[in-house]
Simulated assay, not measured.
Amino acid sequence: MRSIRLPDGARLATYVDGPAQAPVTAVLVHGLSVTAALWRSHVPLLLREGMRVVRYDQRAHGYSTRGTAALSLNQLADDLAQVLETTAPRGPLVLAGHSMGAMTLMRLVARHPHLAPRIRGLVLISPPYAGISTRTGTGPAQSILTLGRNLLASACTHAPYLLDMVRRHLPTTNRWALHSHARPASDGPPLPCRQGLHATVTGDIAALWHDLADQQPDPHPLQQLGARVHLVAGSLDAHIPPEQTGRLAACLPRAQMETVPDATHALPLRHAQLVTDRISRYASPLRAVDKDAAQQSDLGKAV
């Protein structure tokens, strides 16, 4: 593990595997409330494909610190730009992100367009069309789930210090427990995913949630990447339904949209080989060109 210092004082815990001379670097971005451990099964598979792999804990998650900057999607995208500048300043990139991580990548392309020529592939797993929402569907079960989420969001917003008191008394195995943790060894692994928010106070969780919920649709920056964009959704995702990802895909006519049957929001964990395959297909320019040609052929047959 290495620590990347940001201008506002935050430190991002970063994990780099594979040789520096690898022909392409895969950068993997996790979502809200988890850690870089989300990608633990993907790393050895990608290394076998000859790729260098970079993961990091997003600001205020895992071993990464909070810093003084506002928690926002813009800041997360700028954080990622600094990670790229530090760990992979040159050479082709394959970027993959899940949920909030996918939103971070989309904002990175918008705020740092100079990176576009280096992006060989952009794999967006469970990205929403716009902002995230507590309502994800219709029907009685979804209504109950939405009610619970609304109550939790309201409590996080209006009584964060009270919730922090409760969280400090939760067992350390509880994903919402609040406590500090020791710094890892320099070669240590990321914190387990379920400990992603152990050092994040409730007020910061609420601030990040509200910023993500307020996002407006902006697919245009992705259009410059054409067929280099691959969207993946789970058919049973209760957090970001595949219809949301489908709306984004409809704005990107050259992108590929894939819905995985019986997959939930935990798609990267439960379908690690599938996700790895979608990332590694961009490992070489030839494979990327073949993919683009196959897509164009499929489009021609459809017409």
Rank of each mutant, 00 (worst) to 15 (best):
M1H: 13
M1S: 10
M1D: 10
R2M: 13
S3Q: 14
R5Q: 15
P7S: 10
G9N: 06
A13L: 04
T14M: 03
D17A: 09
A20F: 02
Q21I: 10
P23G: 02
V24K: 14
V24T: 15
A26D: 10
A36K: 11
W39P: 11
H42I: 00
P44T: 07
P44N: 02
M51P: 00
R52D: 03
R52S: 04
V53P: 05
T65G: 12
R66H: 10
G67M: 00
G67Y: 05
N74F: 04
L76E: 00
D79K: 06
D79R: 11
A81F: 02
V83M: 10
E85R: 15
L93T: 04
L93Q: 05
A96C: 10
S99C: 03
A102N: 12
M103C: 03
L105I: 07
M106N: 05
A110I: 00
P113M: 00
L115V: 01
P117I: 02
G121I: 03
G121W: 03
P128N: 13
A130V: 09
I132D: 13
I132A: 09
I132W: 13
G139E: 01
G139S: 02
Q142F: 01
S143V: 11
I144E: 09
L152C: 09
C156Y: 12
T157W: 05
H158K: 13
A159R: 13
A159F: 02
V166C: 01
V166G: 02
R168C: 02
H169Q: 12
P171R: 04
P171Y: 00
R175W: 05
R175L: 08
H179E: 11
S180H: 12
S186W: 05
D187K: 03
D187C: 01
L191P: 00
C193T: 13
C193L: 01
H198P: 08
A199H: 09
V201G: 12
T202H: 10
T202P: 08
G203T: 11
W209S: 08
H210N: 08
A213E: 15
D214Q: 14
P217W: 01
D218Y: 01
D218M: 01
P219T: 07
H220C: 03
H220D: 12
Q223V: 06
Q224G: 07
Q224H: 00
L225I: 02
L225Y: 07
G226T: 11
A227L: 07
R228F: 01
H230K: 13
L231G: 08
V232F: 00
L236H: 15
D237M: 09
P242R: 13
E243G: 15
E243W: 09
T245G: 05
R247K: 12
A250I: 00
P253Y: 09
R254I: 06
Q256G: 15
P261A: 07
P268M: 13
L269A: 11
A272V: 04
L274I: 08
I279T: 06
I279R: 14
S280Y: 12
R281W: 11
A288F: 05
D292Y: 08
D292A: 10
A293S: 11
A294N: 08
Q296R: 10
A302D: 13
